[in-house]
Design a protein around this nucleic acid. Structure first.
Lengths: 195, 195
DNA sequence: TATCAGAGACAGACTGGTCTGTCTAGGTTA
DNA sequence: TAACCTAGACAGACCAGTCTGTCTCTGATA
């Protein structure tokens, strides 16, 4: 170990990472308005001035959180799981709902932060605008998978598919444990129509 | 005109109605947390003490608003429009998305208050719990229409159908003007599967 | 090698503003 | 008179964002 990074001392320089980690933990589970800056500061073990040095306002911290959410949730989880689970393009599309099924069953299921923030803050708010962009990126992943599966009208397909994804998430948030299977069945029919 | 209702004098007794009207106007468009009691009071032209005489807390005002929303939106609009537009039970089901299509095009489209409140306040909050109950009632209407159409497994059908409704609403909130048509196409396929 | 300056982190008080809910005081109508 | 209303001050909590002052680590210089 050449540089003894040792994590033990309340290591400097990692402050930004700790803030983002705490913001992710709190915002993804409880929403934006319910979590105050003081709580983020305390949860991150960071001074308030340090947070404001790295993020000039709460809004900008929220935008950074949403970027983080895209990396962790959209790319490292949804897209990765879809590609890992499916043996061919159509299977990879359907595997999204298999992943959702496991996700919905988790005790700490927190729904979709992009939808939550969009509805919580409104589409005019900077964080709402960012959410819309991140939702577009999810649709882009679906669209690419549809193109790989050589389905017709991939843009329209992706928009319909996204309706199923969002509807399933809201239904799961409402308590329907089988929402993913229901959506998957409708998704199969959608593939048929675009084959 | 027997009783000169004339709206001009800040008529008494109608205070509760004015409060509910203002709460509906504000909460349905901007959400719960973004609207303070002072704003409701001012918009209703009512004294604060009067509001608190009729509704012991903001939470209870919100619950009353959600009840109002069920009357106005779920029953007087969704159910009424579905039954009015459709000539037979299956058409009445599909007509929900025709009504949605017009709704999504309105400039003051405000999405679904039950979904908004559920995601804004969380399912543990009293208003969130009430939202879940009101969403169940929407599903019940769909279920009854499915039974009238003699479709198989009406409960499961209604849950799947509701996924399409909620997904379409969120997509419309995100900006997809054709969300209702897309959902309607998938809804047709769902009817086929339950025939 | 010893010293010292600066960067950045820490703790937490403080400001200005908002929010919910209570209270006082006075008006209007039946 | 009784019941209900209006106006608006007020208490107490909370929140975003600023600021003061202290500490610790790094790295350059003497």
């Amino acid at each position: 170990m050449p540089e003894a990074p040792a994590a033990a001392p309340p290591t400097r320089a990692a402050a930004r990472e700790r803030i983002l980690e705490a913001a992710y933990r709190l915002f993804s589970r409880r929403g934006i308005r319910d979590v105050g800056i003081d709580e983020v500061v305390q949860s991150a073990g960071v001074a308030k001035a340090t947070l404001y040095r790295h993020f000039p306002s709460k809004d900008e911290l929220v935008v950074a959180f949403l970027q983080d959410r895209e990396r962790r949730w959209t790319r490292d989880w949804v897209e990765t799981e879809a590609r890992r689970r499916g043996g061919n393009p159509e299977e990879r599309l359907l595997a999204i709902f298999d992943a959702f099924d496991e996700w919905f069953g988790r005790a700490d299921f927190e729904a979709c932060s992009f939808i939550n923030v969009l509805l919580e803050m409104g589409s005019a708010h900077p964080a709402g605008e960012a959410s819309v962009r991140h939702l577009e990126n999810i649709r882009l992943i679906v669209r690419r998978l549809a193109e790989e599966a050589a389905l017709s009208d991939p843009e329209s397909f992706a928009r319909s598919w996204h309706i199923l994804m969002k509807g399933a998430i809201v239904s799961a948030a409402e308590g329907d444990a089988q929402a993913a299977q229901r959506a998957k069945a409708m998704a199969r029919a959608l593939i048929e129509r675009h084959r």
